[in-house]
Amino acid sequence: MVLNRRPGGEVSARPLHFIWIADCSGSMCVDGKIQALNQAIREAIPHMREVAKENPHVQVLVRAVKFSDVASWHIPDAVPVEQFGWKDLEASGATAMGEALELVAEKLKIPPMPERALPPVLVLVSDGQPTDDFDGGLRTLLNLPWGKKAVRIAIAIGEDADHEVLERFINNPETPVLQANNPEVLKKYIRWVSTTVLKTASSPPSQVGAGASSAAYVPIPQPVSEPEDAEDVW
């Protein structure tokens, strides 16, 4: 008997790299912020898997960078979301956000990034101000084709986060910084980026026509705006 009832393999899928960029500076110890972040990401994983499962055109790969006195890969290898598990972050030290962006940029070069992929999703979560060369890191990232094309989301935890810095990371006036002042809101935003943003980046949903708003119907943040110019295809 044949193994498969029909020939061929799965429908062709492109990789989508999803990278958490997490602030682990000392201030994240205060008020259980780091624990709330660990909890929110862990809780979002099954929902992320569900999104990936429903979309046959995407292979979601996840990893994470952490930054405090220095930046380092927390989960260095791109793990298929089906096998992805979260390791707890611990907080101490300063806010080497620029170095974190340099690390991410390293991975967005071609290679190791493939030439053909879906836009990567970069989620920066921070409660403070960078203490290193943020501009240098951002420049390196945005000078890369994949850095430019990436869907960049920023979540500010608490009142002390530097919105101006996060807005520059997003580099798109239509996408606001998501402000999370308590664990519930943080959880909601983390879930939103893990599902709705992931879904939008991997395959845009049903398109709503003229007369209807182009905003997402998820009753929280603004959707990721997509460039409309076909000349932008590269």
């Binding site: 799965e10 992929a117 409309e228």
Partner: peptide, 28 residues
Amino acid sequence: FYMFFLHHPLEGRKEAEIHCFDLPAMKK
């Protein structure tokens, strides 16, 4: 076509040449 070929009828060399498969790429 998807059901019988497990593929999209317009995704050939032109798709292969697209690096970043986003909305503008799809429009093209």
